[in-house]
Structure formats: C-alpha cells, structure tokens
Simulated scan of single mutants.
Amino acid sequence: MASENCTAPTTFILSGLTDNPRLQMPLLVVFLAIYITTLMTNLGLTALISIDIQLQTPMYIFLQNLSFTDAAYSTVITPKMLATFLEETKTISYGGCILQYFSFVLLSISECLLLAVMAYDRYVAICKPLLYTVIMTKAVWLRLVKGLYFLAFLNSLMHTSGLLKLSFCSSNVLNHFFCDISPLFLISSSSTALNELLVFIFGSLFMVINIISTLISYIFIILTVLRIRSDDGGKKIFHTCASHLTVITIFFGALTFSYIQPSSSYSVEQEKISAVFYTLLVPMLNPLIYSLRNRKVRSSFRRTFRVRELFH
C-alpha cells in the first residue's frame, strides 16, 4: 500500500566516487584530462575517416561508429561525474537520471554489437578476400550498423521501462557517480527481482553472442593464417586483428566484473572502480589502440596534416 501511495522523487543525490575531500581536486584534474583526451582522439578519428577517402571501407566505417559511440558514451557519464567533485549537493533530476541510464545502456550495447560486427568484417576480409567487396557491400554494412543500433535501442527501452515502474520511497541517495542500475535497485522500495533477471539474461545474452561470434570469426582467421606459407602475411594479419582483440578483452573484462556476477558478491566500491574503467578509460584507450597499431590510420593522419600544412 505504501508503494502505491509513493510518488517518484524529483531528484536523486549522487554520493560520487569518493567522499574524501583530499582526493576531490586531484581526481577532478585526472578525469578532466582523460575526458578531453577521449573527445579529441575519438572525434579526431571520426573526422579523419570522414575526410580521407582511402579509409572509406567497411572496416574503417565500423571503427568510425565505434569512435563516435565512445565519445557519446563518455559524454553521457563524465561531465556529471566531474560536477560531483565541485558541488556540495550532488543532485541529478529524476528525469535526468532516467535519461542518463537509457543513454548509457543504448551506447554500451551498441559498442558490444559493433565489436561483434567488426570481428565478422575481419573474418570476411581475411578468409574470403576475393569475395569481400561482394559480401560487404555498402547496403550490407549499412544494414548491419542500423540493425545493431536498433537492437541496442530496443534493449535500452526495455530496461528503462522496467526502471520507471520502480518506487523510491525510502531513499533518494545513490551510492554511485552516475545512475547505474545496481545502486538504483538498492534504494528501490519495490521488488526488483524481474528487473534483475532481465538485466542478467539480456546482459549475458549480448555478451555470449559477442564472444561466440568473435571466437568463431577468429577460429576461421587462425585456420586461414596457418595455411599461409608466408610468415610476413601471417604476421600482418595478426597485427591487424590484435587491436580488435585487445579492445574486446578490455571492454568485456570490465563489464563482466561489474554485471555478470552473483548478487551475494556485489560490492558498491568494486562496482565504482570497474565503472571508472569502462566508462572513462575504455573510451579513451580504444582510439589510441587502433590508431597506434594501425599503419593505415597513422599514414592517413600524417597525410592529412601534410595537406593542411601546404594550404597554410
């Protein structure tokens, strides 16, 4: 009866990453530097792929979408997190909290599916090189990109709709630096069993789909490499795939640690640390990993700046 008479809070209070006053300013400076680097590298890589016609291939179009998603993903979380270091009352409106969670799920699932699509693209390029342009046409990669964003949107809509049905009568204090699902469950005054089940099922489903599709793609890639007699050819292929594998390992390692674990072993402090990793560090590392390890991106970067220098 109490939950029926309960009205939704107008604001939530974010506890932030730490309540230690000595750490507030150092963390603000560090995370601000990370955020600026994230925006510069991701948006720079997005612009570079748009400018350079030699990078207008499915592989780099997918990378462009990944970079844009990372920039948006970081922007959804980081500015509000930085504000919590400066504000005494670290509030976020109820609507802002719901919107932040919706955007967070949308972009994280988009990234998850993008990584799976990129693995498939590498499989086609390496295992079926003569048919690559026939299989991976513009119409195909456009459908893949639109499809993954649509699936991510539906998943986010489902979880957010479930969140809107919860009541928060007992407390409006979130022990986190953004509106994540676990701290919202902890302060909910209504049952979260169905919500938790859906988060676990669909989180596991997307992760399993990604891991299985990536494993299958790379098993075929490895078999193809083993048939190549040239050592240089094999090294070049593994060098191309190493960036993608590194990004997948970092991204899913952090998400698994946060979400795919028994509720009995859940720790808010551990969740905050892993959340810093996948919301701040991963979006910054992705473009650095791809641009530093990708010879074509590096040469395109040098070529683009050389052309600009000629016009000045």
Rank of each mutant, 00 (worst) to 15 (best):
I209K: 12
S230H: 10
A139K: 11
S191D: 15
V208M: 12
T137L: 09
L82K: 05
T84V: 03
E4Y: 08
D52I: 00
I187V: 13
F150M: 08
F12M: 06
K165L: 15
L288I: 11
D19K: 06
Y60N: 08
Y266D: 00
Y278T: 04
V208P: 13
L148W: 04
F252I: 06
I222K: 10
F31T: 00
K165E: 15
D52C: 02
T133F: 14
N195Q: 15
S170W: 10
V276R: 02
R298Y: 07
S191F: 12
L281D: 03
D232K: 01
Y278S: 02
L66M: 13
D121A: 11
T89Q: 15
T69L: 00
P283H: 09
I98R: 03
T38Q: 11
I61C: 09
L154H: 02
L154M: 04
F150H: 06
A242K: 03
L166F: 11
L99S: 02
I211S: 13
N210D: 15
T84M: 08
P79E: 09
A152V: 01
I228H: 07
H239N: 15
Y123N: 06
L23H: 07
F85L: 04
Y60C: 04
E88T: 04
S74A: 15
T137S: 14
L82T: 00
S182M: 09
K236H: 06
A47N: 12
Q270W: 00
E271P: 00
L106C: 01
V199I: 09
I228Y: 05
T46M: 12
C97P: 04
L186P: 00
S170V: 10
D180F: 04
E111A: 09
L106N: 00
T78W: 07
Q56M: 10
S264G: 05
S265D: 07
L27D: 04
S110F: 03
D19G: 13
T89I: 14
E111R: 03
L148G: 01
P287Q: 05
G147N: 07
L55W: 08
G234M: 01
V145G: 01
C241Y: 08
L144Y: 06
I216Q: 07
Y60P: 03
A125P: 03
D180Q: 06
L27S: 07
L106S: 00
S263W: 08
M118I: 10
F31Q: 08
H312P: 00
Q56D: 14
I92D: 02
S167Q: 14
H176N: 08
A139M: 09
Q270V: 02
K90H: 10
N210E: 15
M40K: 13
E309C: 09
F168R: 05
E271D: 07
I13L: 12
T246R: 11
S274W: 12
M207D: 11
Q261R: 07
